[in-house]
């Protein structure tokens, strides 16, 4: 029954995504902008938070369904206290056999790191989610972040030293983007054309 609920939830999300593609609402342009100076007169006001992210898939994977909006509107400095225990419970629900992961982190430590959802970024060199040597020094476009996360959730303590657990679940075998990135600004590839 639980699985059926999950399937329905999954289906509804797919439907939501499909429906979204059909509804590109034109926004009402009520602003008359002459330049940056006048912008200050048109964008005054208070803006309230709706979404937030740092590391990929954290909210999706570790936050329970009824708490996803709350997670998005909790400042990072309060997320650890508010969500670490939920993260730990959900990690152990995902992988009941979890002991430590390839970084040597037990469930409490791993979820403590994850629950404060900020992306650490090095100003001194290589910036990567994980490249075999550097861990969480940024996130580059080509980083295979899903596989890294699968390894850390399911692969066990020896996943990177030849003895992974749950071998069928630790790599989706999509190792890169469908089109090449640019080496110069803005780095992302041109959109797919009709």
């Amino acid at each position: 029954m639980k699985f059926r609920t999950i399937k329905i939830a999954a289906l509804s999300l797919v439907v939501a995504a499909t429906a979204y593609n059909c509804s590109n609402e034109k926004m009402d342009n009520t602003y008359e902008i002459e330049g940056v100076d006048s912008v200050g007169n048109t964008i005054k006001g208070t803006y309230i938070q709706e979404d937030q992210m740092a590391r990929p898939a954290v909210n999706t994977v570790f936050v329970s369904s009824g708490s996803k909006d709350a997670f998005n509107t909790t400042v990072p400095s309060n997320q650890g206290a508010a969500f670490q225990s939920m993260f730990q419970n959900n990690l152990l629900a995902l992988n009941p056999g979890y002991t430590r992961n390839a970084l040597g982190l037990d469930a409490a430590t791993f979820t403590s790191v994850l629950a404060t959802d900020v992306l650490t970024l090095s100003l001194d060199g290589t910036t990567t989610f994980f490249d075999g040597t550097n861990v969480l020094t940024g996130r580059a476009l080509a980083d295979d972040v899903i596989t890294v996360e699968l390894i850390l959730i399911f692969g066990g303590p020896d996943a990177l030293t030849g003895m992974p657990q749950n071998v069928g679940l630790i790599d989706d075998h999509v190792d890169g983007n469908d089109v090449a990135f640019s080496s110069s600004f803005p780095y992302l590839a041109s959109p797919h054309l009709q």
Partner: peptide
């Protein structure tokens, strides 16, 4: 090292 994240408001 700095910490970074993005928000929509």
């Amino acid at each position: 090292t700095i910490n970074t994240w993005v928000e929509s408001k």
